[in-house]
Amino acid sequence: MTPNIAVLEIESPHFHMPRLWLPLFLLWIPLLLLSPLILFVILAACIAGCINFWRAIATFWGILCALRGLNIRVTTHDSKVMVRIL
């Protein structure tokens, strides 16, 4: 299943971003509208690179769906970065 929410938090001495909860599921709407263009670009790239179009789509779809559960936290003495994909 595709990821639904991304949580981002970045803190540094010069920059502070509050914890953002990004609803990734809302991105589906513009992506669906742009899908013909995106698929055309991918098709052109696959033809130019001699890559099987359907295998490429399946691979990238698999990567997208596997992003759920990714959790990265880096904390130093004066900065913090957190990325979570739910």
């Binding site: 890559i51 099987n52 295998r55 490429a56 691979t59 698999g62 990567i63 769906c65 596997a66 992003l67 759920r68 559960g69 990714l70 959790n71 990265i72 936290r73 880096v74 904390t75 130093t76 003495h77 004066d78």
Partner: peptide, 25 residues
């Protein structure tokens, strides 16, 4: 010297499996 640093990364195994399929492309 400046202080502690921690890195905590959790990667889904499915992502690794999907990533190695990139080699087939």
């Amino acid at each position: 010297k400046n202080g502690p640093t921690t890195v905590n990364v959790r990667v889904p195994m499915q992502l690794l499996r999907a990533g190695v399929r990139l080699a087939s492309l």
